[in-house]
Amino acid sequence: MPGFYKSKGITLTYFEFLNEHGITLLLGTVTTVKVLVCSMILYVIISMIFGLMRLSKNSIIQGTATVYIEFFRGTSLLVQLFWAYYVLPFFGISLEAFTAGVVALGLNFGAYGAEIVRAGILAVPKGQWEAAHSLNFTPAKRIKRIIIPQIFPIILPPAANLTVELLKATALVALVTVVDLTFEAKQINSITWLSAQCFGTALLIYYIMARFALVPFLRWLEVLAARKVGKEKA
């Protein structure tokens, strides 16, 4: 450990470290990306369904959505993950670690996303509904051509924040034995005890993923959505 302080030693050790364990960390990163993409798809679908259910006039449908949202927003993600992985087998439902992780992430973030979707739909001016109605658009066409294109520019900025939170939250699946970046970092740490290198590299990889891949992608979506309704965005 004292070698750590030597100015030359630190770069040398770090390159050696990357040489030895870089591939493992990258493989972990691939799993993290897989978890992220799967749970992203799941959470987007869930938030749309439950966001719409929240606005239903039927009190049973609305109540179900409210209970779902309150439940998943009221408890900790880690508790939900462990519940999905360790407790569900008690009820005869054994999920693989990856599936349990994705399902828990999707359900948790779906609850937050549903609120965003609900707020987005409510933010579309009432006049737009009325205008579409008075122009005799069919209900399907009204939603598809008038309302949905206007919802996206409203919900995408908060949804982008939520998605970055999702990337950070994927780290938790390591705790239910999914072999992702966090898991690999922990593993390497327990073998080599080069904690600064392990966790420092992991932090950097998460940062690069968020800052230079996920956020630009989400900004691009925002620009796309804004352009679609004729609001140019710089």
Binding site: L167, K168, T170, A171, A196, A202, A210
Partner: peptide, 14 residues
């Protein structure tokens, strides 16, 4: 933009 979990590990182990 980095996970709290790894930050915890970082502070605790480093």
């Amino acid at each position: 933009s980095t996970p709290l979990l790894i930050q915890l590990f970082f502070v605790y182990f480093v």
